[in-house]
Structure formats: C-alpha cells, structure tokens
C-alpha cells in the first residue's frame, strides 16, 4: 500500500515534468487543428490522473520488497549490466561478455571456476556464432588489433 502511494507521487512528478516540457512544443507553421503539443499533454494529464488515483486509493498489493541480501544482489547486477553496456564497444564483445559472465555468474551463485571457463567460452562462441556465422556485426574493441586485421 505504501509502495503504490510512493510510486504514485513519483509518477505525478514525472507527469508534471512531461507536461512542462510539452508546453513548449509548438510548430513554427501550423496547418492542422491538432499540433505536436496536444497529444503529449493529453497523455501527461491522463497519467497524472492515474497516478493520483494510486496516491489517494492505494490497494494492498501482495508483494514485498526483497530482503537485504537480494537487494544487494539486484543493485550489483544492475550495475554490472550497466557496466556491460558501457564496455560493449570499448572492450569489445568477447572480452566484455566473458567479464560479465564471470561476474554476473558469481552473483547467481556459480563457482569461480565454472563462471570463468563458461565466460571465456561464451565470449568466443557467441562472437563466432553471431559475427562470423550470422553476419551480425559485433565490436572487437581492444581485441581489434589482434584479430580485426
């Protein structure tokens, strides 16, 4: 119940921000009755109404936030995924994927050995499979000078 209320308040703010940005959307020359501004404003208004309903009449949702250790895992995993996104081009797909598989695998309870060997295998096999076999171009990153030619 409290969670719905908090979310409703946050989303009210988001809707307000969206409406505030949308107010500035004006077409230089207007030749249609409904310009670029109306629909976003309508959505923002409707979202605010929905959010307000959640604030005023929150239901008891059968859900619970995870316990301390799981929260820790979730934050770490989200951070790892974000790091993976940034490292994808820079380190290149094979290296970044091997690192991700090692670290994320550890969070999911794998042993160092299986995660490390699995990560190296995954980085190489998936790269060969997608880039070489299926023609989906993936970045080599730091490995570029070694294999890219």
């Amino acid at each position: 119940m409290r969670a719905e209320r908090v979310f409703g308040l946050v989303w009210l703010a988001v809707s307000a921000a969206m409406a505030w940005v949308a107010l500035d959307l004006k077409a230089p020359i207007s030749y249609e009755p409904v310009g670029p501004r109306a629909v976003p404003l309508l959505y923002a208004g409707l979202m605010a109404a929905c959010a307000l309903t959640l604030v005023l009449r929150p239901h008891a949702v059968a859900f619970h936030w995870p316990h301390g250790k799981v929260v820790h895992h979730i934050v770490v995993s989200a951070g790892l995924l974000l790091g993976y996104a940034f490292a994808f081009e820079w380190l290149g797909f094979p290296l970044a994927t091997a690192l991700l598989a090692l670290l994320l695998g550890r969070v999911f309870g794998g042993s160092w050995r299986t995660c490390a060997s699995g990560g190296v295998a995954m980085g190489i096999v998936l790269y060969l499979f997608f880039d070489r076999l299926l023609d989906v171009v993936l970045p080599l990153g730091l490995l570029q000078p070694l294999f890219g030619g």
Binding site: A85, E89, A101, L104, G110, G119, M122, F130, V137
Partner: peptide
C-alpha cells in the same frame, strides 16, 4: 544453472539491441 543461463540471456539481449543501430546509447 542460472549462473550460466543469465549471462547468456544478457549477452544475447545486448546483441539484439546493438544490431539495430550499433550505439552504446541504446545499450
């Protein structure tokens, strides 16, 4: 085990996202 499965899902998802525009931004 999830320890192998989940990174695999993450990598395949990233390949999917990257293959459209090839930008870090999308990832």
């Amino acid at each position: 085990p999830n320890a192998t499965l989940v990174p695999g899902i993450a990598a395949a998802s990233a390949v999917g996202v990257y293959s459209v525009h090839a930008t870090t931004f999308d990832l």
